[in-house]
Every structure is written in structure tokens, then in C-alpha cells.
Design a protein around this nucleic acid. Structure first.
Lengths: 312, 312
DNA sequence: TCGGCTCATAAGCTGGGGTTATGAGCGAGT
DNA sequence: ACTCGCTCATAACCCCAGCTTATGAGCCGA
């Protein structure tokens, strides 16, 4: 739906209906500390400001969130639920922040990481949050690029640790498989395929699919995997970004093929359904890589320890 | 860490470092539409405002996000990665919004749902987002409460569909198991137990744990399950909210016992580690319930269809 | 060369959200 | 019983982030 809003009526944005990040953080602080005043101090504003902010949030949501009393403030039942939802938003923001800081920090960081887009987009932020919790002093810099560029950077010594996807360890590097990325055939729940269990690969190959453009990593994997099954047919749509493919699939444009990492949320929320395809292997390894012979140590080792079992 | 900020120095909030939700939405629109002007229209602001907003976002993050050209605007490499991170934040906000709207909407909605806290906090928002995508016209109202209250509401006809946890279907209602909620013993990765694989239940029972207070649902389940293993020992901490227990565990206060739904994020990001306990069954069913004999139809049926396989 | 798209710049307004200062409940301790 | 210390509320004021409209300047294709 949101795909088609370009010329149409601007759909009232969520931002209008969801409180500020600062307000959500304040709410979490109130939940934790049991008092507006202390929460105010914790987030660095005056007590009246905190009180007003919570009140305007209650007005905006149309629900009482806290019981205010001279003895302190407790969450209402609805407040507790809302707080939990708020926590999810704030956590996503923290991941964003961790990633953004790494992106900004160029050289001179204690740990310089180069990562493929898949890893950078879907896995790294979580690791960075965890790393920050475990080793707050570690400053991480991130350089995102395709697997070849990552390998080059690690080889050149401008990155201490790299993350790549693909079948082989790049030449001149050592590496360890840290997980797998599987491509899935996904459709909107309303699509006919959603009820199929176990499609023949040839039928997938012949169907009109929503895909990334030629040359993208996922497209390559798909092309190769389908060669023994008649090769990939003419695509329905070729889009330039994973996100675009995803929203096309969600809006029911047609079946798409995407990394399971990219669609995990959509699958969980049933916005998309995975269609099992019998005997089609669309798995590729995710690897951490480092200069040959130099086992990661220090910060690189810390980060590596967090990545075990990435991708299901 | 954040647990102790009450009296201390206010830690600079993420909100300061993460752009506005509106800005993130705008970035997504630019990514999707390929032009500042069209993105501006899509989110309902003027083109200069959009341009300025993106620019200030780039300044804030210290990274160029879009290539501006007279032919349109494309994301930079970093911009693509940032956009994906932004998408996560916006999606969490959308879940928040879906939940908040349901909470606000009282009677007269097309679908009145009553849900236990666990379901309301962790599962329902996702379902509501999916429902909104599939059936935008369905207005949902949500009433959160404990399982007894939910049963009462469904029985009284003030809710069309209820979600409860517990071993039995409440009297007078029909129901279907839609998933399971398992309690996990979790510790910070630095804790000694983090390396244990397969603890004896008796050792868990005897240890000083971080727990919810007496009378909470999770506490009850734990108490009962540990009776055959010597009963629950004196807790290390008794806290009033799931969130409080969780942050205590994350900061290393001690082992905690929490629903896997509550700690899924923390486990994924390795902020917490689950400790396997051999032969201890801490699973309880999550059920959808409805008035005896009245199979859900219409909107209730739609929602029910989305809940299959909730909880692993 | 014109028309249509792009983005940039300029000037001015507005209001949300902040501040400080102060008051008013409630409860615990002496 | 009084007072201290916490709670939250109210009032008056201020400021700047972000909006708007109006306009200009590149680039491209017909």
C-alpha cells in the first residue's frame, strides 16, 4: 500500500501518532524509577518538563499511563503495556545509534570492521549494542561494502575484522563461518502459493518473480541455483533495493526471493509467508575473516565472540 | 548500567543522537521514491523542508546519506545501510501505534479483544500490524488484563476474542492453543552459568534468583515447577515488572527466570544467555478463547488466522 | 529553446518544549 | 504535632527547530 502513495494523499505519518523518542525514553525511566522527578533527572530535564511530557503523551494516546501521587508515580495497567511497546522502539533506536556511531567513526577507532551489506544491515547493529554493553570502551568503526571490497580492506589492513557472504574464504584471508543466510521464496499471505507446501523448483524458476536487479548478490545465488531447474524466467519486477522488493511482495505484487534475514520480521508478523521449495539449496555461508595467520585478539576477538550462531 | 543512573549523571539519551521518527520516515520515502520532492509530498511537507530535514540528519549522523542531483536523489552506500536500520525503528513505531490505537479505541469497535499482559505486550502489536495490512477497515479495541479478567470479559460478551495463558481453557469458554510460552533461566553473558550446559533443576531451585514478585503469573509457574526439586529458595531480588527483572539480569545482578517472549531480543543480541536446565518443564500454553459454541467469525476469525504458531 | 523536473536559498512565522520559581499534598521521623 | 523531604502541579517567560511561501538555478528531453 505505502508503495503507491507517491502522488496520492499523504498518509498521516506514524510519527504524528507515536510520541517522541525522548518521550518514550522518559516513560521507560518513569517505569524504572517510580517517580517523575527522578525520571526527569535521569533523562536530564526538569521535573515540570517531564510531567508535561508524560501528560501530553497521555493526551496523544488517549490513555492514562501513570498514576500520579504524592508518594510517586506508578504505571497503570495500560501504561505497563505501552511501556513494553515503547521499549521495542527505543531498542531499535539504540541499534540505529550504535550503527550510526560506527559509521561515523572513521580511522583511529579501536576496532575497524568492514562488513557486507547483508551483515551490516541486519546483524551488526545488534552485535554493536551487545558489544557496547560488554565493553563500553570499545569504539568501533564500520565500513560497509560488497564482499570483494570487504576482503580488500581486511587484506590492506584498513579493517581489523571483516564479514562476508559467499561460498569461499577470500584469497589471502583466514575465516570462520559464523552463520548462514538462506534465501526464501516469500509471498503475501493472500497469494495462492501461501497455501502450497513443497513446490517443485522448476515451477519457481518459470514463474514471474519480484527480484533484485542483475548483479546483486542475492540475484546471483538464485540464478545459479535455478540453472539445473531450467534457469530463471523473465522477472515480474526488477527493483534496486531489498526493501523495495520486500514491499512489493508485501503488497501482493507477486512472489519474491529474499534473504531470511531481510524478511524475519515480516514472517513473524505474518505479513509474508515462506513457500517451501523441495530440493532447492539457496544457502550461503556468512563468514568472519581476518588477515591470514593473525588470529583476532582484543576487541576483534570480543566482537567475534558475539557473532556465534548468527543467522539461524 | 542504565539501572543506576537515577542519582548520577544523566546519560546522553539516544533520542539526542537518533533522528526524529518523522525524519526516518522521510528517509524511507526518499529511498523508495528516489526524489526529495516526491518524498516530501508523500510525507506531507514542502520540498525545502524535506531537503533541510535530510541535510540536518546527515549533519547529525556525520555521514552523507543521499546523492542529490538534478535528476533525483539516490541513497549512498551508507545511506542504504542507515535506511535499513531506520526501517526497524519505524516498524517498531508502527507496532506501537497499532497497539496504542487499539488501546484507545474502547467499545463500538468492530473487533474487541481482551488479552493477557504477556500476549498484549509481546505478540499482539505484530498481529495488529498484520491485520491492518490485510484488513485495513478493521478497528480493533484492546483490553489488557490478567487471564481471569480476560476470561470474564469474553464470558460477559464485552470482548469478542480473548487471549490467555495457562494450563486450562477457562470455564464456559471454547479455545484453541495458538502457541506456547516457555520460561527460561537467563544470565548475563559474563555470568558463570553462561558456560554451563544442562544444570540440574535442584541447583536452580537453590540459587538466589532475580524474580517477579509473589502472585505474578510467571512466578507461580516457576514455584510449582520447582516443588519436586526442593522448592524455590530465597530470591536475590523481587521486582515488580518483567522489564525490571530483565534489566537486573542484563546488568549482571544474577540469574533470572523470564518468558522467552520477553527475552527474545536480548538473547538474539547476546545481552542475555539462556541456561538449559535438564528435565524442567516451564512451558505453558497460549490460548485464544471465545464464548462456548460461538466459533469466531468475521474480524475475530481474521485475527485468529494470524496467530497460528505464536511463540516457538 | 522551452517546459518540466530536479534541488537550493531566503525571509519570516509559529508553537512545542524547555526553563525557573513557587505552591500544595502526603508521609515519615523526632 | 510539627517539620522536613519527598512528591507532583501551576504559572510566566523564552527560544529555536522546523515549518511555510516565494524564488532561483541546474540539467534533460522533446
Amino acid at each position: 500500500m505505502s508503495e503507491y502513495e507517491a502522488g496520492g494523499v499523504p498518509e498521516p505519518s506514524v510519527a504524528r501518532r507515536v510520541p517522541d523518542l525522548a518521550a518514550l525514553e522518559l516513560l521507560l525511566a518513569v517505569a524504572r524509577l517510580g517517580s517523575l522527578g527522578r525520571a526527569a533527572k535521569a533523562v536530564g530535564v526538569s521535573q515540570p518538563a517531564a510531567s508535561a511530557r508524560i501528560r501530553s503523551m497521555e493526551r496523544q494516546l488517549g490513555v492514562a499511563l501513570v498514576h500520579r501521587s504524592p508518594a510517586g508515580s506508578r504505571l497503570t495497567e495500560a501504561g505497563g503495556v505501552v511501556t513494553e511497546w515503547a521499549r521495542r522502539v527505543v531498542e531499535a533506536a539504540e541499534a540505529f545509534d550504535a550503527g550510526a556511531q560506527a559509521l561515523r567513526a572513521r580511522r583511529d577507532s579501536r576496532l575497524r570492521v568492514a562488513a557486507s551489506l547483508t551483515v551490516a544491515e541486519y546483524l551488526l547493529p545488534g552485535w554493536l549494542v551487545a558489544l557496547r554493553a560488554a565493553r563500553p570502551e570499545t569504539a568501533v568503526s564500520l565500513q560497509a561494502g560488497n564482499s570483494a571490497a570487504v576482503a580488500a580492506q581486511v587484506r590492506a589492513g584498513s579493517a581489523d575484522l571483516g564479514f562476508v557472504e559467499g561460498p569461499d574464504v577470500p584469497a589471502g584471508l583466514d575465516g570462520a563461518v559464523i552463520g548462514h543466510d538462506r534465501l526464501l521464496v516469500v509471498v503475501a499471505p493472500s497469494h495462492t502459493w501461501a497455501r502450497r507446501s513443497g513446490m517443485p523448483p522448476a515451477e519457481v524458476a518459470g514463474a514471474a518473480l519480484v527480484l533484485r536487479e542483475q548483479g546483486s548478490g542475492t540475484r546471483q545465488v538464485l540464478d545459479e541455483a535455478l540453472v539445473p531447474h531450467g534457469g530463471l524466467g523473465a522477472p515480474l519486477l526488477e527493483l534496486a533495493s531489498t526493501t523495495a522488493v520486500k514491499s512489493a511482495a508485501v503488497t501482493g505484487a507477486g512472489p519474491a526471493v529474499l534473504s531470511e534475514l531481510a524478511v524475519a520480521d515480516e514472517l513473524a508478523a505474518r505479513r509474508l509467508v515462506a513457500v517451501p521449495v523441495a530440493g532447492l539449496d539457496l544457502t550461503r555461508a556468512l563468514r568472519a575473516v581476518w588477515p591470514r595467520g593473525q588470529r583476532p585478539s582484543g576487541p576483534a576477538r570480543d566482537l567475534l565472540a558475539l557473532t556465534r550462531g548468527a543467522g539461524p
